[in-house]
């Protein structure tokens, strides 16, 4: 009854490294960038600058946690920045503004304003989840529509104006600091940690990986695939909303289009970190490395007095390189798949 299968007891070192390409490439990139900038600019490798880098990636980090869930399910959410913007503006709309701000708003106590913001982003996420899982709209298109809807809500609420005030709690968490550490970095770290724990140690987290790895097999195993995908989209909207509320405090204002860069930044962070665009592979650890690669690159290019217009091109090239690695890693992995 035994079937002899020639399987080497241990894969060769080269094979194992290739299997880990997805995880190793971003890490090597990060180390190389840090080494490069440290050696070319004396102001880069300082504690103060580390704090800068972390602060600069914090808002992106919070969004990227939710996006990691969605991408692991082999879906995408293009509405993250727009939902963040709408939520931030909604909280400002629900807060007493300075007399100079001419917006017909609806001031509420701080706690209620925050609750309103959270409910708002969850409502947007629920609409997305409904469209994707119940109606069957591809997430790419559904969240493109949600991007517009979020922008529309922003426009209607502020009507071209700028609001400045948010509840004091948000002001502390977004713009304050404990000792030398900015609160926003602490919040981002906590969100990343929570995201990681849920993905790694809970049944729901396992389902996320399984649904992304092989949706049909998950379904045949009795996993509620629609519920899992819907939950991932809700979590993503919630993360975006939290980032949006803190972002308004961090920026010191709430206005239209202030989050526009964050869509590309968050997707870049997840993908550069090595989470598979095809789902099922990667995680928050990858996203952290991706965030740091982008953060170090952005920050470091300033330190070496790079032409700021060239900077944009370089970021594009880094993203392209990450995509190549991502697809290449997938192809290496597909060798296993072909055996099934």
């Amino acid at each position: 009854m035994t079937i002899s299968v020639a399987v080497p007891s241990r894969d060769s070192l080269g094979a194992r490294l290739r299997g880990q390409l997805r995880n190793l490439a971003p890490l090597v990139t990060l180390v190389a960038l840090v080494a490069l900038f440290s050696s070319t600019s004396p102001s880069f490798a300082t504690l103060a600058n580390l704090s800068n880098v972390l602060q600069q990636v914090s808002i992106t980090a919070i969004i990227a946690v939710g996006l990691t869930y969605v991408i692991l399910c082999a879906e995408i959410d293009l509405s993250v920045a727009s939902v963040a913007n709408a939520t931030g503006i909604l909280v400002a709309f629900l807060t007493v503004q300075d007399a100079s701000v001419n917006i017909p708003n609806l001031p509420l106590p701080g706690a209620l304003a925050i609750a309103g913001g959270l409910l708002g982003c969850l409502a947007l996420g629920a609409v997305t989840a409904f469209g994707v899982t119940r109606i069957g709209i591809p997430s790419f298109i559904m969240t493109l529509a949600m991007l517009q809807i979020g922008n529309g809500i922003c426009a209607l609420l502020v009507r071209g104006q700028i609001a400045y005030s948010v509840p004091p709690v948000l002001l502390t968490l977004g713009a304050g600091s404990i000792g030398p550490v900015p609160w926003i970095v602490v919040v981002a770290a906590l969100v990343l940690l929570a995201g990681h724990l849920v993905l790694t140690y809970t049944r729901f987290g396992r389902y996320i990986y399984m649904v992304g790895g092989n949706r049909e097999a998950a379904e045949h195993s009795g996993v509620g695939v629609k519920a899992v995908v819907g939950a991932a989209l809700l979590i993503c909207a919630l993360c975006s909303g939290v980032a949006g509320m803190l972002g308004v405090a961090y920026f010191g204002s709430a206005q239209q289009n202030q989050f526009d860069n964050y869509l590309l930044d968050a997707i870049s962070a997840v993908v550069v970190g090595g989470t598979s665009l095809f789902g099922g592979q990667g995680g928050i650890g990858n996203t952290i490395v991706g965030l740091l690669v982008l953060g170090v690159l952005n920050n470091g290019l300033d330190h070496v007095r790079m032409d700021s217009f060239l900077k944009i091109l370089i970021r594009g090239l880094v993203l392209l390189l990450a995509l190549v690695v991502n697809v290449y890693a997938q192809r290496l992995r597909a060798k296993y798949r072909s055996a099934v």
Partner: peptide, 24 residues
Amino acid sequence: GTPAAKRAGIAFVPESRRAMLFAL
């Protein structure tokens, strides 16, 4: 769907291994 069938006590092993296993 399949979660409801599973709750009712019905399990299924489909004909295609690709459709039932997580290769990686």
